[in-house]
Design a binder for these strands. Structure first.
Lengths: 220, 220
DNA sequence: CCGCATCCTCATGGATACTG
DNA sequence: CAGTATCCATGAGGATGCGG
């Protein structure tokens, strides 16, 4: 809203008038994990300027995407998605699924945070997230990060000593590639890119042959 | 890519690095209808500056979203979506569905073009577009605009004298509202907002059982 | 005509500093 | 903690030009 409108009576254009500006959808992504404070958003979105974050939040609030709440207990400001704003999960998931070819090149110098991977896994695995929690252990920068997937969502917990039998260790790239079905699970195990109980691997990523006809094919 | 990167190893951020800049997704929307020339895009996107359109097209081409073809017959440049770019339909559709609350306020001073409505109808109706072509007549500015929906897509034709039995006449807002299931079809007929064969109305907006569940193939 | 490139103005974004 | 204020760099928008 603070930016220029496209001035088109078209759903896409009007949607982009609201969430099309820089940082807006990334703010939504953070709030899709749960309500968050201003400072948490600022640190979760490296590189965002404080005035821009304030601007975008104001715009999203006035558009009805985000709610600004006052937590009386802690006497602090908390931002949360409205019901309508939470429906942007469809859009975010679609973009995440579309982005898989861009993720195969690896991290490079980009920053990485656990919740982003949780968001990606949720978008990519979809209904294959089993009802019983499954933990995916990611060894990033020496810290084992566990992504717990269950029917309601995914969250990241740090566990210095997780039970080995319930943890699969892999680089984020490998997990994303697996989720996108670009790498065969058996091949990944054979190459040592993925370690864990084969049965659990199958539980998370599914049998090599089943259940992914819904997913679009990958481009070149 | 011409803009600044978010520098995050996150699917959403990388996707927005490619298609998150201003006008990019609107260009994709136009190309989702079919391949188009530079001048057609310029006129279909009112308000875009020529250098910006060229910039965005260059970026989309180098990112692998759009192909720049040379039509030897007409000796002209034609832009078309790649296979990967065409998969942005999921994202566009998600945003269009999300935008329905923004469309209820009506056109206002915004410009309106028929293909935008076709895109919206396709996103909103989804599998309910029947296999046999159905025409929706839109009375805009005195001209009856027919949106033909079939299994492969939707296109707009101008017909000064369409056969009344196959045409439903309604304002764009009403059609969108109907598609979003915010208005009862019977109520709309009773109020005179929608005219046409009740059986055809039911075929377009009604039962969800008769359509083809197959997702349309990708555009050329 | 078509497919852009250049020029210029001004709104927007980014980084830092600062405040109630 | 939750933002403003400020300054500068960058990108958007509009007009025009130009070669094919």
């Amino acid at each position: 809203m603070s930016g220029r409108s496209y001035g088109q009576y078209c759903g896409l254009a009007r949607a982009l008038d609201v969430v099309g500006e820089r940082w807006s959808l990334l703010i939504v992504r953070e709030l899709l994990v749960g309500p968050a404070r201003y400072t948490h958003l600022a640190s979760a979105l490296p590189g965002v300027a404080s005035n821009l974050l304030a601007d975008r939040l104001r715009g999203l609030v006035s558009a009805g995407v985000v709610e600004r709440r006052l937590d009386p207990a802690s006497n602090s400001v908390v931002y949360a998605l409205t019901l309508w704003g939470a429906q942007l999960r469809e859009t975010v998931d679609a973009l995440v699924r579309w982005s898989t070819p861009l993720m195969r090149s690896g991290r490079g110098d980009d920053t990485f945070r656990g919740p982003w991977l949780a968001t990606a896994l949720r978008a990519l695995l979809g209904d294959r997230t089993s009802a019983t929690p499954v933990a995916v252990g990611l060894d990033t920068a020496g810290t084992v990060m566990m992504v717990q997937l269950d029917g309601t969502g995914a969250r990241v917990v740090l566990d210095p000593d997780p039970p080995p039998s319930t943890v699969l260790r892999a680089d984020p790239e490998v997990v994303l590639a697996l989720a996108a079905r670009t790498v065969n699970v058996d091949q990944a195990i054979a190459r040592g890119n993925l370690q864990g109980d084969p049965q659990e691997l199958a539980a998370v990523f599914g049998a090599a042959d089943s259940g992914n006809a819904r997913r679009p094919p990958l481009p070149t």
